[in-house]
């Protein structure tokens, strides 16, 4: 790197060097995205357009660059959209997608309901406690996600901790069936994804100016109304960020429905796993993944366009 000292006069090539440095800084993340996101995505896309085969790898065509460009062109000619047609024709996939979106939507709502009071409490806590409270929200990440989900099996199963406690307290006479139901899935999701909801909400609430609430009170607004008229609208960026941060990964969630859910739990992540590992149908599972990506990317792009338009309208 020919960065050179800052004073341009002393280093004739300094200006160009600095520009080069700027490009490099920009290039690194994009290169990263290209190698670890875009290239794998195109591989998946390619497989989704291929046909299943009893071979290794289990699909055709297989590109072999060593056999020259003709081999690639011939391969591209063989591409088929059959796998996508299959996804639409078989009601199982449509139902799995819809069910996933529904579970993600309900989970997001539950997370917001649970996470907002936590974030609000954290933001209102004395300043010297706040760093510790944030720490406590992050603390579960220090243990493996998988182990924590397994722990929930121990809590929720018929002879698990929860039932034992409720029976001992006399709240129930017969143990509850929670494990392997959608309820268990919701509990698992809300538990696992809570930090992703709480942290953006906390960030939005924490920087809110308290005098705004005083001003609202001064103008005749009781505290509960002030929450809905001032605090909540001002925390909206945090609400939106938190919802996206949980909705997107929950839609494709596999581990939690697999471990805590039952046969009734239909989620696209489980379907994908079954296609890939049980059926060994790589092309169809790739198509499932590509469609899932499109389903999730479209609302994000729409949302971002909306935000950009709003910002432009406000002249920012």
């Amino acid at each position: 790197m020919s960065g050179g000292p800052d004073n341009g006069a002393a280093a004739p090539g300094g200006r160009a060097g600095r520009r080069g440095a700027r490009w490099l800084v920009l290039a690194i993340p994009y290169l990263w995205l290209l190698v670890f996101f875009l290239v794998p995505f195109f591989i998946v896309l390619k497989i989704s357009l291929s046909m299943t085969a009893l071979a290794m790898p289990p699909y055709v065509p297989v590109f072999d660059l060593a056999k020259g460009i003709d081999n690639v062109v011939a391969g591209i000619r063989q591409f088929t959209t059959d796998n996508y047609v299959w996804l639409i024709e078989d009601a199982l996939y449509v139902r799995a997608y819809l069910s996933s979106l529904w579970i993600a939507a309900v989970s997001t709502f539950l997370l917001l309901v649970v996470g907002y009071p936590i974030a609000y409490g954290m933001a209102r806590a004395p300043r010297r406690w706040q760093a510790m409270l944030v720490m406590m929200v992050i603390l579960p990440f220090w243990t493996s996600f998988l182990i924590r989900v397994y722990a929930w099996i121990g809590i929720l199963k018929k002879e698990g901790l929860l039932n034992q406690m409720l029976l001992a307290l006399g709240v129930i006479d017969d143990p509850l069936t929670i494990l392997n139901t959608n309820t268990a899935v919701y509990i698992g999701i809300v538990y696992s994804y809570l930090p992703f909801m709480v942290l953006p909400l906390y960030a939005a609430l924490e920087r809110m100016d308290d005098t705004l609430l005083e001003a609202a009170a001064d103008l005749g607004c009781p505290p509960v109304q002030a929450f809905w008229k001032i605090t909540f609208p001002l925390s909206m960026p945090g609400v939106i960020a938190g919802c996206f941060l949980v909705f997107i990964p929950v839609t494709g969630e596999f581990v939690i429905p697999d471990l805590l859910g039952g046969s009734e739990t239909l989620m696209i992540g489980k379907t994908l796993w079954a296609e890939f590992f049980a059926n060994r149908d790589w092309p169809v599972s790739s198509a499932v993944a590509v469609v899932l990506l499109v389903i999730l990317v479209v609302p994000i792009v729409l949302f971002q366009n909306q935000e950009a338009k709003r910002a432009e309208r406000e002249g920012r």
Binding site: L212, A215, A216, D218, L219, G220, C221, M236
Partner: peptide, 30 residues
């Protein structure tokens, strides 16, 4: 008597204008 029932109004040092409301809506709030 809580602040929201007192017949006084205050102009804050930081102005404390509601950032998500227009000028009109700020004035109309009370």
């Amino acid at each position: 008597i809580p602040p929201y029932r007192r017949p006084s109004n205050m102009m804050f040092q930081s102005y404390a204008l509601f950032p998500h409301m227009s000028v009109e809506a700020n004035i109309a709030f009370g």
